[in-house]
Design a protein around this nucleic acid. Sequence first.
DNA 1: TAGTCCTCCTACAACGTTGGAAATACAACG
DNA 2: CGTTGTATTTCCAACGTTGTAGGAGGACTA
Lengths: 356, 356
Amino acid sequence: MAATMHDVARVAGVSVKTVSNVINDYPYVRPATRERVRSAIDKLDYRPNLSARGLRSGKTGVIGLAIPELRQNYFAELADAVIRAAERRNVAVLVDQTGATREGEIAVLAGHRLRLTDGILFSPEQLGQDDIALLQVPFPLVLLGERMFDGPTDHVTMHNVGSARAATEHLLEIGRRRIAVIGAHPTHPDDIRSANLRVRGYREALAAAGIPYDPALVRVAAPWHRENGAAAMRDLLADGVEFDAVFTFNDTLGLGALRTLGQAGIRVPEDVAVIGLDNIDEARFSVPSMSSVDPGRDQIAEVAVDLLIERINEKGDPAPPRQILADYRVAARESTGFVDPEPALASAVSPSVLAD
Amino acid sequence: MAATMHDVARVAGVSVKTVSNVINDYPYVRPATRERVRSAIDKLDYRPNLSARGLRSGKTGVIGLAIPELRQNYFAELADAVIRAAERRNVAVLVDQTGATREGEIAVLAGHRLRLTDGILFSPEQLGQDDIALLQVPFPLVLLGERMFDGPTDHVTMHNVGSARAATEHLLEIGRRRIAVIGAHPTHPDDIRSANLRVRGYREALAAAGIPYDPALVRVAAPWHRENGAAAMRDLLADGVEFDAVFTFNDTLGLGALRTLGQAGIRVPEDVAVIGLDNIDEARFSVPSMSSVDPGRDQIAEVAVDLLIERINEKGDPAPPRQILADYRVAARESTGFVDPEPALASAVSPSVLAD
DNA sequence: TAGTCCTCCTACAACGTTGGAAATACAACG
DNA sequence: CGTTGTATTTCCAACGTTGTAGGAGGACTA
C-alpha cells in the first residue's frame, strides 16, 4: 500500500511530527534532518493523504464551481479560466453542472451537490433577484454572473452597462445610426437585471450621440441561445424595420443572428454590422468573424478565486460583501469591418499532401 | 460549527455507530430508532464529513478527469458527459487541464496534479504510443481517446476505422466520387494512430465502392485545429485538385474548411459536400450546418466512468485491461445536402418587440 | 555559575468516521 | 425457566495527519 508519514519517519529515523514539519516547511528543522526526511520521502514515493490532512485541518484544498452546463461555450471558457486560476493557487476544482434548472441551483446552495469542497463559486442562471435569501449559506460562496445582485455574498461580474455602452459606441463609431438590439427580456424586466442594464448601456450610448431611441429596434430574446438570436433576426427582417447594425446581448445570440443574415443574403458588415458580448472563442471563427466585447473573463476568474480563498481563510467576523466589476474592451472583427486583431495562427507544420 | 455524528447521536439518544448505521443503510436498525436518528439529522442539518469518511474508508468518492483544455469544444462536451455520468453514480468529478503539454500529461500520470481522487480518467493529447510504459501507475486509470493503444489500462475510444468509413460512405451515397480528406499526419504515421485508422476507414469505403485512391486528395493537417483545416482547404484549392467532397478528420478542421470554402465563394454542398467527425454541438450551428459522424461521446463517458468505478472497487488481482469501442452514427446536415435532423428548437417565448 | 533564550525534536491527543467484535434485548423453544 | 438464536445496539480502535505542549541540548547573558 501507499507509504504513510510513519513509514517515512521510520526510514528517516525521526518522529512523524518532524516529517510533518519538513513537509509544511516549519523553519526549525536542521538542514541535515530535513535532507534525510526528504530523501526518505523520495525513496518511498510518499504522498500526503489528503483526506487525513483535510480531516485534521478542516480544509480540503478543493473548491467547487457550479455552472449551468459545460457544453455552453461561455461556461467552458469560464471553467477553463477558473481552473487555471485555482491551479496557480494550488487549489483543485470540482465542477458541478446544475443543468440550468432551478432545482439544480437550489441543490447547490443547499450544499447537497458539492461536497468535499471548502467553498463554492456559483454562476446561477435560473435563480433571480427574488431568491437572494437563498444565498445565505453556511459555507463560503462567491457569486458569478448577472442574475442576482446585492446579495449577502461576494459577487464578481462583468460591467453590464459599460460593456453594452462600449458595444453600442463601437457601432456608432463606424457610422451606424439604426442600431437594433437583440436579447431584451419580455415579461419581467426586473428578473433579468443584466438585460436591463445592457439596454441602459445601449440607451446611454445613443443618448450621448444624440440619436433617438426607437423601441421597434429593441428585440426580445430569451434565453440567450443561438436559435433565439436567429429567430429574433428573422422577426426583425420580417417586420421590415430599417437597421444598419445589431448589437446582440451575448455572442451566442449574435452567431444565431449572423446565420439568419447569411441565409437572407444580407451582407455583413456592409449592409448590417454585428457585435456581440462575451467574446467567446467561437466569435473569432464564424464567417464573418464576429466583433464582441470582452467582458474580462480571465480577470473575473482570477478575482473570484481570490475572493473565495480569502473567505475560506477568513477568521472572525466576516467582512461585508464585496462586488467587483471586471474591465471590458471591444474586440473588433470582420462583422464590424475590421480585420481580426488576434488572427488564429496556422500551425508551424505547413499542410501538404500526404506521401502514400 | 457544523454538527457531527456525535451531536446527532446525543440528540437521538443513541450511539454514534447507530447513526453511522442509519446513514449507511445497515439493515439491523429498528424502524423507530432509524426514525429518531433521521429526525435528529434533519433537525441539526447534519452532513457527514467526507474527509473523515475518506480517511476511514480509503475512498473519497471523487474521480479525476484530465483533459487538454476545456475551451476546446470537444473536451467541454466530453467533460459534460462525464460529469453527468458520474453524478448518476454519486461520484464527483475534479477536472484538471493538462494544457495539452507533455509535461502536464506526465504530471497527471505521476499523480502530482490530481489528488483526493480515487482514480483518473485521462485523455492524452501529447503522449503517444512510445509512452505506453508511463501508463503503469499505482492508481486506477482509464484511458480515453486515440493517442495510445494496447496499454496496461482499460481504454474507451471511438471506432476510428468504422466512423471514418461511415463518413466516407455517406459522401459516396450522395453521389460524390472525388472525396478529399483533411487531417492526415505528416511525418510519423505511427504516431497519430487515429489519423492512420481514419485514413484506413476512408480507403476501405473507397475500395468497397470501387473508387481508386488518389493521394493528391489526402491532405495533412496537424494539430486538428480550425486554422489548419482552413489552411489545408486553401492549399487544396490552390493546387487546383478537382474534388466534390471533403471529409475532415474532426469537426474543428471541418469548420475551418467550411470557412475557407465560404470565403472562396464555393457552394456547400452544391459544389463541395463536407462532413466532419466528432459531432460537436457547434456543427449544428455553422452556415451551412455541418454533417458529422457522432462517435458516441455519451456512451464513451458512461462506459469510462463505469470501468473506472469498477476498477476502484476491484479487490484482489486486477482483471486484464479492456478496450471498448463506442457505437457511431452519421448525423447528416446541410453540408451534405440534408436538412438538420435535430433542428435547434426556438424558445417557447416568441421573440417580439419590447414594450418601452 | 545559574538563569534565560534559542533551536530542534518528540509525545500525545484529536479531527469525524466506520469496521469488527462484543454486549444487550427480545422471542421462540424445549 | 434456562437455552438458543436472532435482532439491535454499543464499545473500541483505527484511518493519517497536525496542533499543542514540552523536553533536551547548546549558547548567550547577568
